[in-house]
Amino acid sequence: MRQHCTLKIGPRIFRIGSDWAAPVRQLRALYADYPMPDDLIAHFTVRLEAARWWRHFLRPSVHINGDHMLPGALPLPLAQGLLAAEMGMNLQLALGERHFLLLHAASAERNGKVLILTGESGSGKSTLAALLGEHGWRLLGDEFVLIDPTTGHAWPFPRPVSLKNASIAVLDAIVPPARFGPLLTGTPKGDIRHLVPNAAALSGMDSPAAPALILFPRFGVPRDVRTMGISEVFIRLTQASTNYVALGEAGFGALTRLVTATPARAIDYPDTMTGLALVEELWSALA
Protein backbone atom coordinates (compact mmCIF):
# COMPACT_ATOMS: atom_id res chain seq x y z
CA MET A 1 0.00 0.00 0.00
CA ARG A 2 1.23 3.49 -0.72
CA GLN A 3 1.33 4.70 2.88
CA HIS A 4 2.63 2.43 5.57
CA CYS A 5 4.64 2.17 8.77
CA THR A 6 5.83 -0.52 11.15
CA LEU A 7 5.37 -0.16 14.92
CA LYS A 8 6.57 -2.21 17.84
CA ILE A 9 4.41 -2.30 20.96
CA GLY A 10 5.76 -4.52 23.69
CA PRO A 11 6.57 -7.95 22.24
CA ARG A 12 4.48 -7.50 19.07
CA ILE A 13 5.21 -5.71 15.79
CA PHE A 14 2.51 -4.32 13.50
CA ARG A 15 2.65 -3.33 9.85
CA ILE A 16 0.01 -0.74 9.04
CA GLY A 17 -0.85 0.14 5.46
CA SER A 18 -3.28 2.87 4.49
CA ASP A 19 -4.97 4.18 1.38
CA TRP A 20 -4.53 7.69 2.79
CA ALA A 21 -1.50 9.61 4.04
CA ALA A 22 -3.13 11.22 7.09
CA PRO A 23 -3.58 8.20 9.40
CA VAL A 24 0.01 7.07 8.82
CA ARG A 25 1.32 10.60 9.39
CA GLN A 26 -0.63 10.80 12.67
CA LEU A 27 0.59 7.35 13.72
CA ARG A 28 4.21 8.33 13.05
CA ALA A 29 3.80 11.44 15.17
CA LEU A 30 2.07 9.59 18.00
CA TYR A 31 4.66 6.79 18.06
CA ALA A 32 7.71 9.04 17.44
CA ASP A 33 9.27 8.18 20.82
CA TYR A 34 8.68 4.41 20.60
CA PRO A 35 11.78 2.25 20.18
CA MET A 36 12.23 1.05 16.61
CA PRO A 37 11.63 -2.66 15.97
CA ASP A 38 14.87 -4.67 15.76
CA ASP A 39 14.12 -6.63 12.62
CA LEU A 40 11.05 -4.87 11.16
CA ILE A 41 9.32 -8.21 10.63
CA ALA A 42 5.73 -7.58 11.63
CA HIS A 43 3.68 -10.27 13.33
CA PHE A 44 0.46 -8.67 12.14
CA THR A 45 -0.68 -6.62 9.16
CA VAL A 46 -3.39 -3.94 9.43
CA ARG A 47 -4.99 -2.40 6.35
CA LEU A 48 -6.93 0.87 6.36
CA GLU A 49 -8.84 0.70 3.13
CA ALA A 50 -11.42 2.55 1.12
CA ALA A 51 -14.40 0.29 0.42
CA ARG A 52 -14.60 1.55 -3.21
CA TRP A 53 -11.96 3.48 -5.11
CA TRP A 54 -14.02 6.68 -5.23
CA ARG A 55 -14.36 6.53 -1.46
CA HIS A 56 -10.69 7.58 -1.31
CA PHE A 57 -11.99 11.07 -2.06
CA LEU A 58 -15.76 11.22 -1.73
CA ARG A 59 -17.01 10.93 1.86
CA PRO A 60 -13.83 8.98 2.65
CA SER A 61 -14.44 6.22 5.17
CA VAL A 62 -11.88 3.84 6.57
CA HIS A 63 -12.47 0.10 6.60
CA ILE A 64 -10.36 -1.76 9.15
CA ASN A 65 -8.95 -4.93 7.59
CA GLY A 66 -5.92 -7.12 8.03
CA ASP A 67 -4.72 -10.65 8.67
CA HIS A 68 -7.66 -11.26 10.97
CA MET A 69 -11.02 -9.64 10.36
CA LEU A 70 -14.39 -9.36 12.04
CA PRO A 71 -17.25 -9.63 9.58
CA GLY A 72 -19.59 -6.66 9.60
CA ALA A 73 -17.25 -4.19 11.36
CA LEU A 74 -18.39 -0.64 10.66
CA PRO A 75 -16.06 1.83 8.89
CA LEU A 76 -14.94 5.11 10.49
CA PRO A 77 -14.74 8.55 8.85
CA LEU A 78 -11.25 9.50 7.66
CA ALA A 79 -11.04 12.18 10.38
CA GLN A 80 -10.92 9.28 12.85
CA GLY A 81 -8.27 7.39 10.85
CA LEU A 82 -5.92 7.30 13.82
CA LEU A 83 -8.59 5.59 15.89
CA ALA A 84 -9.15 3.14 13.02
CA ALA A 85 -5.45 2.26 13.05
CA GLU A 86 -5.50 1.69 16.82
CA MET A 87 -8.63 -0.44 16.54
CA GLY A 88 -7.01 -2.37 13.70
CA MET A 89 -3.98 -3.19 15.84
CA ASN A 90 -6.18 -4.20 18.77
CA LEU A 91 -8.22 -6.42 16.50
CA GLN A 92 -5.19 -8.24 15.07
CA LEU A 93 -3.91 -8.96 18.56
CA ALA A 94 -7.33 -9.89 19.95
CA LEU A 95 -8.10 -12.33 17.13
CA GLY A 96 -4.63 -13.48 16.10
CA GLU A 97 -2.52 -13.81 19.23
CA ARG A 98 -1.80 -17.44 20.08
CA HIS A 99 1.14 -17.34 22.47
CA PHE A 100 0.16 -14.89 25.19
CA LEU A 101 -3.11 -15.18 27.05
CA LEU A 102 -4.75 -11.81 26.39
CA LEU A 103 -6.72 -10.08 29.09
CA HIS A 104 -8.71 -6.99 28.29
CA ALA A 105 -7.16 -5.04 31.16
CA ALA A 106 -4.96 -2.15 32.15
CA SER A 107 -1.80 -2.83 34.09
CA ALA A 108 1.10 -1.13 35.82
CA GLU A 109 4.24 -2.27 37.59
CA ARG A 110 5.97 -1.18 40.80
CA ASN A 111 8.94 -2.82 42.55
CA GLY A 112 8.92 -5.61 40.01
CA LYS A 113 5.28 -6.57 40.64
CA VAL A 114 2.29 -6.04 38.39
CA LEU A 115 -1.16 -4.68 39.19
CA ILE A 116 -3.91 -5.76 36.78
CA LEU A 117 -7.09 -3.68 36.48
CA THR A 118 -9.85 -5.32 34.52
CA GLY A 119 -13.47 -4.41 34.01
CA GLU A 120 -16.07 -3.35 31.51
CA SER A 121 -15.66 -0.30 29.33
CA GLY A 122 -16.39 2.71 31.60
CA SER A 123 -14.98 1.11 34.77
CA GLY A 124 -12.20 3.69 34.71
CA LYS A 125 -9.31 1.29 34.27
CA SER A 126 -7.62 3.37 31.53
CA THR A 127 -7.80 6.54 33.62
CA LEU A 128 -6.54 4.82 36.78
CA ALA A 129 -3.67 3.18 34.89
CA ALA A 130 -2.72 6.45 33.18
CA LEU A 131 -2.69 8.23 36.54
CA LEU A 132 -0.64 5.45 38.17
CA GLY A 133 1.80 5.82 35.25
CA GLU A 134 2.28 9.47 36.25
CA HIS A 135 2.65 8.67 39.96
CA GLY A 136 5.67 6.42 40.25
CA TRP A 137 4.35 3.30 38.56
CA ARG A 138 5.50 1.94 35.20
CA LEU A 139 2.49 1.81 32.91
CA LEU A 140 2.29 -1.52 31.06
CA GLY A 141 -0.80 -0.70 29.05
CA ASP A 142 -4.45 0.32 29.21
CA GLU A 143 -6.00 -2.14 26.76
CA PHE A 144 -4.39 -5.57 26.95
CA VAL A 145 -2.19 -7.37 29.40
CA LEU A 146 -0.31 -10.29 27.87
CA ILE A 147 0.19 -13.29 30.17
CA ASP A 148 3.06 -15.53 29.13
CA PRO A 149 1.94 -19.15 29.67
CA THR A 150 5.54 -20.33 30.05
CA THR A 151 6.51 -17.95 32.89
CA GLY A 152 3.21 -16.61 34.19
CA HIS A 153 4.58 -13.09 33.76
CA ALA A 154 2.63 -10.10 32.45
CA TRP A 155 4.09 -8.45 29.34
CA PRO A 156 3.65 -4.74 28.63
CA PHE A 157 1.57 -3.62 25.67
CA PRO A 158 2.03 0.14 26.09
CA ARG A 159 -0.07 1.57 23.28
CA PRO A 160 -0.94 5.21 23.76
CA VAL A 161 -3.65 5.31 26.42
CA SER A 162 -7.02 5.95 24.88
CA LEU A 163 -8.54 8.61 27.14
CA LYS A 164 -12.24 9.20 26.76
CA ASN A 165 -14.45 12.20 27.47
CA ALA A 166 -14.04 13.56 31.05
CA SER A 167 -10.78 11.66 31.69
CA ILE A 168 -9.03 13.71 29.00
CA ALA A 169 -9.09 16.81 31.23
CA VAL A 170 -7.93 14.82 34.28
CA LEU A 171 -4.68 13.86 32.55
CA ASP A 172 -4.35 17.12 30.62
CA ALA A 173 -3.92 18.86 33.98
CA ILE A 174 -0.75 16.94 34.87
CA VAL A 175 0.88 15.80 31.60
CA PRO A 176 2.75 18.06 29.12
CA PRO A 177 0.79 18.69 25.87
CA ALA A 178 3.54 17.15 23.72
CA ARG A 179 2.51 13.68 24.94
CA PHE A 180 -1.04 14.00 23.62
CA GLY A 181 -2.36 13.02 20.21
CA PRO A 182 -5.04 15.02 18.39
CA LEU A 183 -8.51 15.29 19.97
CA LEU A 184 -10.90 13.00 18.07
CA THR A 185 -14.48 14.16 18.46
CA GLY A 186 -17.71 12.36 17.69
CA THR A 187 -16.29 8.84 17.71
CA PRO A 188 -18.55 5.89 18.59
CA LYS A 189 -17.21 6.29 22.17
CA GLY A 190 -17.46 10.09 22.32
CA ASP A 191 -14.32 12.22 22.48
CA ILE A 192 -11.03 10.33 22.43
CA ARG A 193 -7.51 11.59 22.92
CA HIS A 194 -4.41 9.43 22.99
CA LEU A 195 -1.81 9.85 25.70
CA VAL A 196 1.71 8.61 24.94
CA PRO A 197 3.11 6.66 27.92
CA ASN A 198 6.16 8.24 29.55
CA ALA A 199 9.80 7.33 28.89
CA ALA A 200 9.91 4.71 31.66
CA ALA A 201 6.94 2.87 30.13
CA LEU A 202 8.40 2.97 26.62
CA SER A 203 11.94 1.96 27.52
CA GLY A 204 10.55 -0.86 29.68
CA MET A 205 8.28 -2.30 27.00
CA ASP A 206 10.37 -5.46 26.74
CA SER A 207 10.42 -6.11 30.47
CA PRO A 208 7.67 -8.38 31.80
CA ALA A 209 7.02 -8.89 35.52
CA ALA A 210 5.02 -11.17 37.81
CA PRO A 211 1.38 -10.28 38.57
CA ALA A 212 0.77 -9.44 42.24
CA LEU A 213 -2.78 -8.06 42.44
CA ILE A 214 -5.91 -8.20 40.28
CA LEU A 215 -8.56 -5.53 40.76
CA PHE A 216 -12.03 -5.34 39.23
CA PRO A 217 -12.86 -1.63 39.46
CA ARG A 218 -16.35 -0.12 39.14
CA PHE A 219 -16.63 3.66 38.74
CA GLY A 220 -19.33 6.02 40.04
CA VAL A 221 -20.60 3.99 43.01
CA PRO A 222 -19.92 4.34 46.77
CA ARG A 223 -16.52 3.13 47.96
CA ASP A 224 -16.43 -0.58 48.66
CA VAL A 225 -13.97 -3.46 48.63
CA ARG A 226 -15.05 -7.07 48.17
CA THR A 227 -12.95 -10.24 48.26
CA MET A 228 -13.56 -12.75 45.48
CA GLY A 229 -13.31 -16.52 45.27
CA ILE A 230 -10.85 -17.83 42.70
CA SER A 231 -13.66 -19.45 40.68
CA GLU A 232 -15.33 -16.08 40.24
CA VAL A 233 -12.01 -14.47 39.30
CA PHE A 234 -11.36 -17.27 36.84
CA ILE A 235 -14.75 -16.94 35.15
CA ARG A 236 -14.57 -13.17 34.97
CA LEU A 237 -11.11 -13.35 33.43
CA THR A 238 -12.25 -15.86 30.79
CA GLN A 239 -14.83 -13.24 29.86
CA ALA A 240 -12.11 -10.57 29.77
CA SER A 241 -9.93 -12.70 27.49
CA THR A 242 -10.22 -12.58 23.71
CA ASN A 243 -8.23 -15.75 23.10
CA TYR A 244 -8.76 -17.97 26.15
CA VAL A 245 -10.68 -20.56 24.15
CA ALA A 246 -8.32 -20.44 21.19
CA LEU A 247 -5.27 -21.15 23.37
CA GLY A 248 -6.80 -24.42 24.55
CA GLU A 249 -4.95 -26.16 27.36
CA ALA A 250 -2.18 -23.52 27.47
CA GLY A 251 -4.81 -20.86 28.15
CA PHE A 252 -6.39 -22.91 30.91
CA GLY A 253 -2.98 -23.51 32.48
CA ALA A 254 -1.99 -19.85 32.33
CA LEU A 255 -5.27 -18.63 33.76
CA THR A 256 -5.38 -21.24 36.54
CA ARG A 257 -1.85 -20.30 37.56
CA LEU A 258 -2.71 -16.59 37.51
CA VAL A 259 -5.84 -16.83 39.66
CA THR A 260 -4.36 -19.24 42.20
CA ALA A 261 -1.18 -17.18 42.67
CA THR A 262 -2.66 -13.68 42.60
CA PRO A 263 -5.01 -12.07 45.13
CA ALA A 264 -8.04 -10.30 43.66
CA ARG A 265 -10.53 -7.69 44.86
CA ALA A 266 -13.59 -6.05 43.41
CA ILE A 267 -13.43 -2.33 44.14
CA ASP A 268 -16.15 0.31 43.84
CA TYR A 269 -15.23 3.99 43.84
CA PRO A 270 -17.23 7.20 43.44
CA ASP A 271 -14.51 9.35 41.79
CA THR A 272 -11.04 9.00 40.32
CA MET A 273 -9.07 10.33 43.29
CA THR A 274 -10.82 7.97 45.71
CA GLY A 275 -10.12 5.14 43.28
CA LEU A 276 -6.45 6.00 43.10
CA ALA A 277 -6.15 6.14 46.91
CA LEU A 278 -7.96 2.81 47.19
CA VAL A 279 -5.59 1.15 44.74
CA GLU A 280 -2.54 2.44 46.63
CA GLU A 281 -4.06 1.29 49.93
CA LEU A 282 -4.73 -2.25 48.70
CA TRP A 283 -1.30 -2.41 47.10
CA SER A 284 0.43 -1.37 50.37
CA ALA A 285 -1.57 -3.98 52.27
CA LEU A 286 0.04 -6.67 50.10
CA ALA A 287 3.54 -6.02 51.34
Partner: peptide, 21 residues
Protein backbone atom coordinates in the same frame (compact mmCIF):
# COMPACT_ATOMS: atom_id res chain seq x y z
CA UNK B 1 14.16 -18.30 11.30
CA UNK B 2 14.14 -14.70 12.55
CA UNK B 3 12.56 -14.48 16.02
CA UNK B 4 9.45 -12.57 14.89
CA UNK B 5 8.82 -15.07 12.10
CA UNK B 6 9.21 -17.95 14.53
CA UNK B 7 6.72 -16.29 16.90
CA UNK B 8 4.18 -15.74 14.10
CA UNK B 9 4.56 -19.32 12.86
CA UNK B 10 4.33 -20.74 16.39
CA UNK B 11 1.01 -18.89 16.68
CA UNK B 12 -0.13 -20.35 13.36
CA UNK B 13 0.81 -23.83 14.51
CA UNK B 14 -1.10 -23.42 17.78
CA UNK B 15 -4.09 -22.22 15.80
CA UNK B 16 -3.89 -25.18 13.44
CA UNK B 17 -3.60 -27.61 16.34
CA UNK B 18 -6.65 -26.12 18.03
CA UNK B 19 -8.48 -26.14 14.73
CA UNK B 20 -7.67 -29.80 14.22
CA UNK B 21 -8.89 -30.75 17.70
Amino acid sequence: LPASVQAALDAARTEAQHNRT
